[in-house]
């Protein structure tokens, strides 16, 4: 009983005394790596892809979702994204528009074909599941420097090469996470694995990103993402079938008026 109170306190004070100097010491390196990651991926312009999402419950039963996505790079702001659902049939044509912002809440809208209306979604929901999957919105929205504090932890072997292991602490209080740990491939500065920790600092989910392919000689994109929830034993696979770049999409395709026309 007494231990139950004292142990966490001791651990906490230990952790604080150990972590504080470390954190400040490596702050610079973590941020530098993050900037390098962002800059290496800059300039891709716009893209489109076909995606299948496979949801699995603890017993292994599966359910599929099909969607098309389009994305537009915004040099001075967060990226814009448009997702159109094809399956299940009863949500076919429903379109989700997201304007992410590096340092403020994302703007989100949903077009509901049954109502023929565009509805705005409250954006504190970034921690919530996307389409009932193990992916939260914040896992899928674009990588922005201002969204995190970075802390370089170590180098670690991963597969055939070496990974930079970075700890990312979300800046937004409405994030569902206390932190995430990213294994960034040192060659192409893309994540191979991300561990997400919940607000009580327990490991919640692990995302593994596989089948990286090179586009436009510069941009690496994964084609299979698997998110496993360690607490509920549920998992979701995100399988990207096809990605095309330079599709000619412009900002006009990513506003709320365009949302109603999206098919």
């Amino acid at each position: 009983m007494r231990n139950a109170i004292i142990t966490p306190l001791v651990l906490l004070s230990l952790a604080l005394s150990l972590l504080t100097p470390l954190a400040s010491a490596d702050d610079g390196k973590g941020l530098a790596i993050a900037k390098e990651r962002k800059s290496r991926d800059a300039g891709w312009g716009d893209s489109e892809s076909l995606t299948t999402m496979v949801l699995r419950n603890a017993a292994g039963a599966e359910s599929k979702r099909e969607m098309r996505t389009a994305a537009l790079e915004m040099p001075d702001d967060g990226d814009k994204g448009l997702t159109i659902f094809d399956e299940p049939r009863d949500v076919r044509g429903t379109a989700f528009l997201n304007h992410s912002h590096p340092s403020s809440e994302d703007d989100q809208w949903l077009y509901l074909p049954a109502l023929k209306r565009v509805k705005r979604i409250a954006s504190r929901n970034k921690s919530g599941p996307f389409m009932g999957s193990e992916f939260a919105y914040e896992d899928l929205s674009s990588f922005e420097i201002a969204k995190f504090h970075f802390n370089y932890l170590r180098d670690e072997a991963c597969g055939d090469s070496t990974c930079l292991v970075i700890e990312q602490t979300p800046a937004d209080e409405y994030s569902g996470y206390s932190k995430s740990v990213v294994w960034l491939n040192q060659q192409y500065y893309q994540p191979e694995k991300i561990e997400f920790y919940d607000k009580k600092h327990s490991l919640l989910k692990t995302l593994t990103l596989q089948d990286y392919q090179l586009y436009l000689d510069k941009y690496w994109r994964p084609h299979k993402l698997r998110m496993v929830n360690h607490q509920t034993a549920k998992s979701t696979d995100l399988i990207i079938h096809k990605i095309s770049f330079n599709t000619g999409r412009t900002a006009a395709d990513f506003d709320t008026n365009a949302l109603q026309r999206a098919r």
Binding site: F85, D90, L112, K119, I121, G128, M131, A136
Partner: peptide, 14 residues
Amino acid sequence: AQYLLMYEMSLPYG
């Protein structure tokens, strides 16, 4: 289905 989708998209973690 679409109301439910919209609602689900609005719910926070947990």
